[in-house]
Design a protein around this nucleic acid. Structure first.
Length: 485
RNA sequence: GGCCCCAUCGUCUAACGGUUAGGACAUCGCCUUUUCAAGGCGGUAAUCAGAGUUCGAUUCUCUGUGGGGUCACCA
């Protein structure tokens, strides 16, 4: 089935260094990475820094850190080099210039003689006439020689373009979509529209994956491929990720988060990858939880979704919880302990681990639960509200009596046998003989926790240890007796 | 507005033209339980509308409607 003329699969992720990358960017990178890995191909990281005004210091490192967090490794990139360096577009200016001159010589590009004001006038005129503004309607008859200080434009072959997209199938656009777009800016840098095509060509990129916002500029790219006389790569259009709030494409302006914020919140990178993969892709079966290795196996460009998908942190939380369950025990324990606030690190927190585990879906839930007071019974002695000690309409005498029975039952258990299971067995022996188990269990639970809602009394007792358990029960018992007098 | 894309439960999605339209998240109920959480079991819930093709349409075609994208010396 392997055909010698079939080139090795090469994909790339090409962000611009304008700050952080969000989940949408990461999903694009993920799909490109999955396709390369599935086919034994190459995944390239290229930085599109052709707009110096928008560049943000430190972005490149931040982007690389982001990809590393989710275990997306690249085979060629600015940090490690590769077959077609450099991987920063700002360092490839001579290359773009070379191709620019080539296009001029072939008559496919010309210098833009107009001032910004003049173009603005053209635009306004078109607007008044309710016609789409097209630069190509103003093509100069005798353009000046391009000296690099004016924009260079493509002399586009204006026609109706039709093309094949791997996920969308046959696409087309009217001739209004084709215009003489700028290849080289007056500052000497190429536009994205020009640079990415040259780089994809030179780097041997076989599959270009990008969002659907690029469909409308594809005719322009096709015009450029034609002018260049090159074969285009496969075009793979991905659906948008919509912000959770509305129905709009997720973007930085409406609060898309830095992917590394999810790391800070204690999400598992494998869960992030799994969820991101399934937002716009589905392998068809009913399995939901996949390891990175499995994601590679089942990935298929043809199964990428066509319509946009809404981002849901709720579902991400579920994926994260499921992936947490797959972690080795030691790993879980280590993380929970590390996420406990510093001031509580001196406590014997190990006992709380099982309790945390069933209540968290991400690591940052650990400090959140503590802040919410859910673990107060462990960190500080309870304040006993006598009103709440009683169970339904049980009499105070009965409660005091039941508490003393509980104390006795617990005292019978030796220190080394002081487990939740044994405590439960002993207490249930008594509770089952009462009218209602609650008559015993509620006062005990409340005496130990001081909380309306808490884990069960057996678990709490086992966590507190025998001396502390008895001490708290005595406190409550005494308080109850005092009240009865 | 021009051009283009998209359309299955609230959400993410599955279904060679033939299924009681499946799963997951969320939600609701039950079980377990003194309460909470977790867990187990179960329920509610969808093919945008209208034509056409066909013995048969979620699936193919057209129109409409709705939503989205794009029209920069940004990427």
């Amino acid at each position: 089935m392997e055909d010698n003329t079939t080139a090795k699969v090469v994909t790339r992720f090409a962000p611009s260094p304008t700050g952080f990358i969000h989940v949408g960017n990461v999903r694009t990178a993920l799909y490109a990475w999955l396709w390369a890995r599935k086919n034994g191909g190459k995944f390239i990281l290229r930085i599109e820094d052709t707009d110096k005004k928008r560049e943000v210091e430190g972005s490149i490192q931040h982007i690389m850190d982001s990809l590393k967090w989710v275990h997306l490794d690249w085979d060629e990139g600015p940090d490690i080099g590769g077959e077609n360096p450099p991987y920063l577009q700002s360092e490839r200016l001579e290359t773009y210039k070379k191709y620019a001159h080539m296009l001029i010589e072939k008559g496919y590009a010309y210098a833009d003689p107009y001032s910004a004001e003049e173009i603005d006038m053209f635009r306004k005129k078109a607007e008044i006439e309710k016609k789409p503004f097209l630069y190509r309607n103003h093509r100069p008859e005798n353009p000046p020689v391009w000296d690099g200080t004016r924009p260079l434009r493509l002399k586009a072959n204006v026609k109706k373009y039709e093309w094949h997209d791997v996920v969308r199938g046959e696409l087309q656009a009217g001739i209004e979509a084709v215009d003489d777009f700028i290849l080289m800016k007056s500052d000497g840098y190429p536009t994205y529209n020009f640079a990415h095509i040259i780089d994809d060509l030179l780097m041997g990129v076989t599959h270009v994956l990008r969002g659907e916002e690029f469909i409308s500029s594809t005719p322009n790219y096709l015009a450029l491929y034609e002018a260049l006389g090159i074969k285009r790569p496969e075009l793979v259009t991905m659906p948008s990720i919509l912000g959770a709030a509305g129905t709009k494409k997720m973007g930085k302006r409406d609060g898309a988060k830095d992917i590394l914020d999810y790391q800070k919140e204690g999400y598992l990178p494998e869960a992030m990858l799994n969820y991101l993969d399934f937002l716009g892709f589905n392998p068809g079966g009913e399995q939901e939880i996949f390891t990175a290795e499995e994601l590679i196996q089942v990935f298929d460009l043809a199964k990428i979704q066509r319509s946009g998908a809404k981002w849901s942190e709720e579902k991400l939380n579920w994926f994260n919880k499921e992936h947490m369950k797959l972690l080795p025990k030691e790993e879980i324990v280590k993380n929970i302990l590390e996420w406990i606030p510093k001031e509580l690190q001196n406590k014997d927190n190990l006992k709380l681990v099982p309790l945390f585990l069933e209540r968290i879906s991400k690591w940052s839930d650990v400090p959140a639960l503590i802040a919410a007071g859910e673990m107060d019974f462990f960190y500080k002695p309870p304040r006993i509200n006598k009103e709440k000690l009683g169970y339904k309409d049980a009499s105070p005498e009965k409660i005091a009596n039941n508490l003393s029975l509980a104390i006795k039952a617990i005292e019978e258990i030796t220190d080394e046998n002081f487990t939740a299971e044994n405590i439960k067995n002993n207490l249930m022996l008594i509770a089952d003989n009462l009218e209602s188990r609650g008559e015993l269990l509620h006062p005990v639970r409340f005496a130990l926790s001081g909380m309306d809602k808490s884990p069960d009394p057996f678990l709490i007792a086992s966590i507190l240890g025998k001396p502390e358990t008895i001490s708290r029960l005595n406190t409550a018992h005494n308080a109850q007796k005092a009240q009865n007098v």
